[in-house]
């Protein structure tokens, strides 16, 4: 034992003697308190709750809700609801318009006939690309607007692609589009006639029952 600082040791010993003593019943009181106190439930719930909240936030951030439906789906539903089972009341032109909405082949000539609005296009066209022309027959075609300068007819450059072609080339393109569209109509007519046959057979079965 270190004998240094004798004065300090004496002072500390004297001080300790003056401090209050431990009561005799203190331990009994403590045991009573321990006996009465409920045992601590060691299971902690809050970490699990916190983990569940974090997992929910992560799942929402990483997996956002998907869209409920597409325009094509809605269009198909519209087509299904508008096709009349009684064949004699359905006109060819009306059916063409309705059926043609779902024809994917329309997309093939979309790039070529950007200058002309086709009524059977399935997706809505942006406003910048829309030109107010609907082709049913050449006679019903609305005239393109020309702006004349020095007596020459030029097309409105609403679409920059027009500037690539001369007026003669554009006329040829238009003729080609018209021919393609007629072929499309013929194809759709054949589809309609085939469908018509099936529908009439179904009608006969229903009527016979």
């Amino acid at each position: 034992m270190d004998n240094r600082d004798k004065g300090l040791r004496k002072a500390l010993a004297h001080r300790e003697q003056q401090l209050p003593e431990m009561p005799a019943d203190l331990n009994d009181r403590l045991m009573q308190r321990v006996a009465v106190a409920p045992r601590r439930n060691r299971r902690m719930v809050w970490p699990w709750v916190a983990a569940a909240c974090i997992a929910a936030v992560i799942s929402i951030v990483l997996m956002p809700p998907r869209d409920s439906g597409t325009d094509v789906t809605q269009t198909r539903e519209y087509v299904a609801s508008n096709v009349d089972v009684k064949v004699d009341k359905v006109t060819t032109a009306d059916t063409m318009k309705v059926v043609a909405k779902d024809v994917p082949a329309v997309a093939e000539h979309k790039a070529v006939c950007r200058t002309q609005q086709v009524a059977v296009v399935s997706k809505p066209q942006p406003a910048a690309d829309t030109v107010a022309v609907a082709l049913a027959t050449p006679a019903k075609q609305a005239p393109l607007e020309y702006v004349t300068e020095d007596g020459k007819k030029i097309l409105l450059a609403t679409n920059p692609e027009r500037l690539k072609y001369t007026p003669e080339e554009i006329d040829k393109l238009k003729e080609r589009v018209r021919q393609k569209y007629l072929e499309l109509l013929q194809l759709e007519t054949e589809i309609f006639e085939a469908t018509q046959g099936q529908l009439s057979a179904m009608n006969e079965e229903i009527n016979n029952k």
């Binding site: 600082d5 004798k6 004065g7 300090l8 002072a11 500390l12 001080r15």
Partner: peptide, 20 residues
Amino acid sequence: VDDTLDNGDEKTVLLIERAL
């Protein structure tokens, strides 16, 4: 410090006790 805290006389011990 050593000289003061090592001094075991009563007066110094009382002083140390007060200083504590």
